[in-house]
Write a protein that binds this DNA or RNA. Structure first.
Length: 652
RNA sequence: GGGCCCGUAGCUCAGCCUGGAUAGAGCGGUGGCCUUCUAAGCCACAGGUCCCGGGUUCAAAUCCCGGCGGGCCCGCCA
């Protein structure tokens, strides 16, 4: 039993390869000899192209060298190899073939023996790190939408992957309760007489936020139009009126949803002498921690977070710690950071505001290269403190980042790619403070946004696809489909399976793509339960379970030497490779690599399923070997989905 | 104007970091396969200037330079 069967094969190949090279050409020194996965099945289980490099050095053809190398390796195999059966020269490459029976036996028994833990290839004791993954961190003023879903699902998968790798991981949600947006909501909610939330609280407050915002915009625009008319600026009047029209349309949409609430709010805002002043007063009082403001703002945020927790629970995502931005403000940490930053000499007062000279920091410490920026690029400065003395978001974020480093030596922030500059500023601020190591251990895990064709999502207008709505739709679709495939299930089972399948479909869609690329959201795509989807993988898992169930016996006398079909070989290799795939995905922070692997394995398994019998295979040794193989596939699919936070039902 | 990201089949995407043997999936299209372990499946066919142009290399979708196209960012917003 081993944790990494393919790794065992890999290092065997590598060892024999280096030894053979040393024996044949003793003077030659090659760095970075490696064996890699061949592009095709007929090129073996592992391959090396060193002969192309050696050819130049030795003045011989790659083909010649490959033959010499292969036969040298083959002469070493009988005495030295456990898993390797033969090396073969082909077109200048040396291709390695494993002893399939032994590799199958090792991989399958390792998977079956380790069960849930198979694939969790831990780093060495010295490499274990304390990691904080901050993710989701949706503003507590509206329900989560699809974009937040992508963030949450990525952050959660990262945490799972890093834990599987043996790291000590904590997930955090940063509650942005300070600032104008929450204050707008608080203002509106207060104007309504602070009614008790109806329905899911984040949805309720999201509507109030959008309505308040809309009322404020319309009021502001009307005033500006009048001002522009007085100034006789026709062009400006036209532009403002167009904007006003678009908000009037939003108002119409919002009113339809809750007319009473809407009318009450609008007349309150109309009647308010100076709404902006009231909102600023909320901001000020909350930052100053005045009781009335704390009660109002915290009350709202707590309610919204209750809604978030419900959504996250449904997604199977748990947050270890909720950090409040206000706590950072109320502590003296912001003031301390500010003082140190000023003392660092990398700030400057301009027009009464305090600026951070990010570019100077990068130049002083020679960071542009490692940050991937050209020397000529001038990093824009950043305002830390307004001329009225109030702080801006980034300085609080610097303070919060330092706080996170008290509990971790690596901090991963799952934040949209649109905030790259802001995250760069935070990193440079840490450098300015002399915290170079922390700065280097601060990772911005940037993902791209989720686009919706046609409509533009806007929280301020209350216009977006909520995650709750999306999940509901997917689950109900799954609910409809379950009986077509598994008739006769109890209502309870049907509901449970629909939940796992529907939620899984949504999560997989958001996870399976390169985070750097934007996702164009379409219902079609999320509700496609066919190939390249979670339901497809789950279905494959259920099929494996079904075989094992129907077999009704343990594979007691497997004869792995009878596994020889290409499909069997591909399955064995995939099972063997799984731990390495997990390790690579974790180390490179690429959950999508796991998703792609599940598709590949499911794909191979379904072909196997269609062409080779398991239970009725003859002789019994073959049937048992296939049964064990099916069990190993089941385990790997389940664990792989598990790393993505997706469930694997046993029937569906 | 500057910076970052993306550009691969009609559509949605893998592969690019770490160059290698005829570039892979899915959807959609066409044609087959349920009296055999779940047809959310399988098999076959059709479909490609890997955005363009240079360069490096024995070898470039992959690395470098220059373009073009799309997105995002450059607030005393978050």
């Amino acid at each position: 039993m081993v944790a990494d069967p393919f790794g065992a094969l890999r290092s065997e190949c590598l060892g024999l390869l280096s030894e053979a090279i040393a024996r044949l050409w003793s003077g030659i020194k090659l760095d970075g000899i490696k064996v890699s996965l061949p592009s095709k099945l007929e090129f073996g289980d592992l391959t090396t192209n060193v002969c192309f490099t050696l050819a130049r050095e030795l003045g011989k053809s790659p083909q010649e060298l490959a033959s010499a190398l292969a036969s040298e390796i083959n002469s070493l195999i009988p005495s030295r190899a456990e898993l390797l059966s033969t090396a073969e020269a082909a077109g200048g490459y040396v291709n390695f073939w494993s002893d399939l029976a032994r590799l199958a036996e090792l991989s399958i028994s390792s998977a079956r023996c380790l069960g849930d833990r198979y694939g969790h290839l831990e780093v060495g004791p010295g490499e274990k790190r304390k990691i904080i993954v901050e993710h989701t961190s949706a503003n507590p003023i509206h329900p989560m939408h699809v974009g937040h879903g992508r963030n949450a699902v990525l952050g959660d998968a990262l945490a799972r992957l890093l834990r599987a790798r043996g790291h000590d991981v904590q997930t955090r949600f940063y509650v942005n309760d300070v600032g104008r947006q929450v204050a707008i909501l608080a203002y509106g909610y207060d104007k309504l007489g602070r009614p008790r939330p109806r329905g899911k609280p984040d949805h309720f407050f999201g509507l109030i936020y959008a309505m308040t915002n809309c009322a404020l915009e319309i009021r502001r625009l009307k005033e500006e139009v009048n001002r522009a008319i007085r100034a006789g600026s026709d062009e400006r009047v036209r532009r403002l009126k167009a904007e006003l029209d678009s908000w009037a349309f939003s108002a119409h949409e919002l009113r339809r949803r809750e007319p009473d609430l809407f009318d009450k709010l609008f007349s309150a805002v109309e009647g308010d002498e100076d709404p902006e002043a009231s909102i600023s007063e909320v901001v000020r009082a909350y930052e100053a921690r005045e009781g009335w403001a704390v009660e109002l703002v915290r009350g709202i945020c707590e309610e919204c977070l209750r809604g978030f927790r419900e959504t996250l629970d449904r997604l199977g995502i748990s947050i270890d710690k909720w950090d409040w931005e206000s706590e950072v403000v109320w502590s003296n940490l912001v003031a301390k950071v500010l003082a140190s930053l000023e003392a660092s000499g990398f700030t400057k007062v301009r027009a009464g505001a305090l600026e951070f000279l990010a570019n100077a920091v990068a130049e002083r410490f020679g960071l542009k290269g490692e940050l991937g920026l050209s020397g000529e690029f001038e990093i824009p400065p950043l305002t830390l403190v307004r001329s009225d003395g109030t702080t801006l978001y980034e300085i609080r974020d610097v303070a919060y980042t330092l706080r996170k480093f008290k509990d971790a030596d690596l901090v991963i922030n799952v934040i949209g790619a649109d905030q790259k500059l802001a995250q760069l500023h935070v990193k440079l601020a840490l450098h300015a403070l002399g915290e170079h190591e922390k700065a280097r251990n601060l990772i911005h895990f940037a993902y791209n946004l989720v686009k919706i064709p046609g409509a533009k999502m806007s929280a301020r207008r209350g216009r977006f696809i909520t995650l709750d709505g999306l999940l509901e739709e997917a689950v109900s679709r799954a609910y409809d489909e379950v009986p077509e495939h598994s008739p006769g299930l109890s209502e309870e089972e049907r509901t449970r399976i629909a939940e796992v399948v529907g939620v899984g479909a949504v999560k997989f869609t958001l996870l399976a793509q390169d985070p750097a690329k934007e996702i164009t959201f379409t219902w079609d795509r999320v509700l496609n339960f066919e190939e390249n989807s979670a339901p497809y993988v789950q279905y494959t898992h259920a099929r494996a379970c079904s075989i094992l169930r129907k077999a009704g016996r343990e594979p007691e006398q497997p004869d792995f030497s009878l596994l020889g079909h290409p499909l069997e070989r591909e399955l064995v290799l995939a099972i063997a490779r799984f731990p390495e795939v997990v390790a690579d995905a974790a180390d490179s922070l690429r959950p999508d690599a796991i998703a792609n692997f599940t598709i590949y394995l499911a794909d191979r398994f379904n072909s196997f399923y269609a062409s080779l019998p398991v239970i009725r295979a003859e002789p019994r040794g073959l049937s048992d070997a296939r049964l064990a193989l099916v069990d190993a596939v089941r385990i790997v699919l389940k664990n792989a989905l598990g790393l993505l936070g997706i469930g694997a039902p046993e029937r569906m």
